[in-house]
Amino acid sequence: MDVFMKGLSKAKEGVVAAAEKTKQGVAEAAGKTKEGVLYVGSKTKEGVVHGVATVAEKTKEQVTNVGGAVVTGVTAVAQKTVEGAGSIAAATGFVKKDQLGKNEEGAPQEGILEDMPVDPDNEAYEMPSEEGYQDYEPEA
């Protein structure tokens, strides 16, 4: 019985440690998101679009440190934060509304985080759909 109880105690310690790591990862992701939003706020009209992409990228980098179902929630929060940063930029006159959601080359930025393969159960990952990809044929 002692062996059984000791095993359960060790398992509990492992769960607590994993929860603490997840909590730490979420806190880091939130900190990076805040950094990115402050970065966007300090940019001029020309830099705002690039700044919004930076927020998304920093958040995406930190999301990889967070495991399990938390990833889905962090990704949703990050996307809403990026959308909010863009709205703030438009409201303050840093950028025109028609410039939001495009990178410096004018290509749409939507789907940055949505296409990231995420499995809350950590069982399997699927690649994003290939609808947006084109076949590449090298020139002879």
Rank of each mutant, 00 (worst) to 15 (best):
I112H: 14
E123Q: 06
A17W: 14
E130C: 06
A124Y: 07
K34E: 06
P128N: 10
E13W: 01
E35C: 15
G86I: 08
M5G: 02
V66M: 14
K43Y: 14
K102P: 13
A11W: 15
K10Y: 08
V74C: 07
K58T: 08
V40M: 08
Q79H: 02
V16I: 14
V66C: 14
K12W: 14
F4N: 00
N122P: 07
S42L: 05
E13C: 08
E57N: 07
V118K: 13
K80G: 07
S87A: 11
A91T: 03
V48Y: 03
G36S: 07
E126D: 10
V55Q: 00
Q62L: 07
V26K: 00
Q79P: 02
V82W: 01
I112C: 12
K96R: 15
G7A: 04
A29Y: 14
Y136T: 02
T33W: 15
V82E: 05
E13Q: 10
E114S: 12
E46A: 10
T59E: 01
A27Q: 12
Q134K: 15
G93A: 01
P108S: 10
N122C: 08
G41M: 08
G132H: 05
T44K: 01
G47K: 09
K23Q: 03
V48F: 07
E110D: 06
V82N: 04
E114W: 13
D119L: 03
K10I: 15
E61Q: 10
D135W: 08
P120Y: 09
Q134S: 08
G93P: 04
L100C: 06
A19W: 11
Y125W: 09
Q109D: 09
G106P: 10
G51I: 13
E137K: 03
V77H: 04
F4T: 00
Q99S: 15
A78R: 07
A56D: 01
E105A: 05
D135P: 10
G31S: 14
E105Q: 13
P108C: 11
E139Y: 01
T72Q: 02
V71G: 03
P128M: 03
M116I: 08
V74D: 02
E57V: 13
E105R: 06
K43F: 01
A90Y: 14
L100P: 01
V49T: 11
E83F: 11
A107G: 09
E13T: 07
E130D: 07
G47Y: 09
G67L: 07
K12E: 00
G106Q: 15
A78Y: 10
Q62C: 10
G73A: 05
A17L: 07
V40Q: 00
A89F: 10
A19S: 01
E126Y: 08
F4D: 00
T92S: 07
E61P: 04
G36Y: 13
V49R: 12
G86A: 08
A17M: 14
E13M: 00
A53L: 06
D135G: 04
K60M: 08
V48E: 01
M5Q: 01
E123G: 12
V48M: 08
N122I: 07
I112R: 13
G132F: 14
A140W: 10
K23Y: 10
V71M: 03
T44F: 05
V95H: 13
Y125F: 11
G132P: 03
A30D: 00
S129A: 09
V48L: 06
E131P: 14
K6E: 04
K80F: 15
G84C: 00
L113Y: 06
V55H: 01
Q134W: 14
K80D: 01
K97L: 00
E28G: 09
K60Q: 12
A76I: 05
K34H: 11
T22W: 08
A124F: 09
D98M: 10
E46P: 03
E20T: 09
S129R: 06
A76F: 04
A11M: 14
E110K: 03
K96S: 14
Q109G: 03
V70D: 03
D135H: 15
A11F: 14
E35N: 14
T22D: 06
E110L: 01
T33V: 14
G47V: 03
K12G: 06
E139I: 09
G36V: 10
T75H: 03
V70E: 05
K32I: 09
D115A: 09
T33S: 08
G41V: 04
Q79E: 12
K34M: 14
T72E: 10
A19E: 00
E126Q: 09
K102Q: 11
L113T: 05
E35Q: 06
T72P: 01
G7Q: 10
L100Y: 13
T33I: 07
K97H: 08
D98H: 07
N65F: 14
A27W: 11
T54K: 07
Q99E: 15
